[in-house]
Amino acid sequence: MISFLSKLTGPQNDGMKRILGIFVLLMMVYVVTAIINPNFLGSYNQENLIRRTSLFGILGVGVAFVIITRGIDLSLGSVVCLVGVGVPWLIIDQGWPVPVVILIALGLPAVIGFCHGLLITKLKLQPFIVTLCGLLMYRGITRGFTGDQTAGFGTELKGLRWFATGEIPLRIGLDIPVPAVILMIIAILAGIFLNRTIYGRYMLALGNNEEAAKFSGINTDRMIILAYVISSGLAGLAGLLFVLDVNLAQPVDFGNFYELYAIAAAVLGGCSLRGGTGTILGVIIGTALLQVLRNMMNMAFLGFQRAEFAVIGAVILSGVIADELAKRAVARKRAAQKQK
């Protein structure tokens, strides 16, 4: 198991330690919530948590690639909105055939990511600016073409909605939500890509030092563009699944702030905004932690629901602080050993 995990996480420094640290934090939140409200551990709630983690996790995995290449993608929430609102709007309101719409929903975000990548590598624009403009544009476009109207499937398309709301029965008293299977497939592919292929190695290398990577003969531009394609593409998939799950999407606020949840999860999971480090498993556990925290506020601290964001912010901050302190302790130890 451990060797399998390390294959997925790769031989990156401190990667496993980080994952272990955040996993312990997740378990602590689990234990505390379960003690306060035993229903927390019920299969219904656990299935809900798994489904939410899976949906947000897809976003997190996507943005992790961009963060690893020392970029940032602020447009994710708006891509979620574009796809989440656009799909029911095209299918229900405009009557387009479902396969065509699904194709657009998965293809268009990839094109968006490709454009982001081109602007960032060829025109040398800063990722923050490019994707910030994306954040504004895609939501604005969505509001424009729908006339700000809520879009939803109503009682139709039950078959397609299975991908978001369906469950695969297991004999262990816990059914596996379909999105979890989708995330699992994505995570394994992403893990293999990042740690077992040369392109993953290229991304890690250029995230650490783009110039040196270029001097080693790596086509860094192509890798950066690829990272943005992955990020936007997965955001599109997540947007599709979100709307299939929630069943109605409002152009004004669908997917609002989701880019920040995704970035927070990636950072919690060990991606450094300085680039070059990050593990897929860490990102997924980071996402789970965020979702469990939100659930915890409802399950155990109902009176403090308003403080939810404060709690999430505090947990992320303490996680990052703890990590930094641990790193310093290691560095001190190393320095001490060197002196001997």
Partner: peptide, 25 residues
């Protein structure tokens, strides 16, 4: 039992309903 708010986030609104069912079956 209580009052849950979602600040207009639809996914959160649905999660609130789900969490209610989990908490009070």
């Amino acid at each position: 039992l209580g009052t849950l708010t979602d600040q207009f986030d639809r996914a959160k609104a649905k999660a609130n309903a789900e969490d209610t069912l989990a908490r009070n079956p």
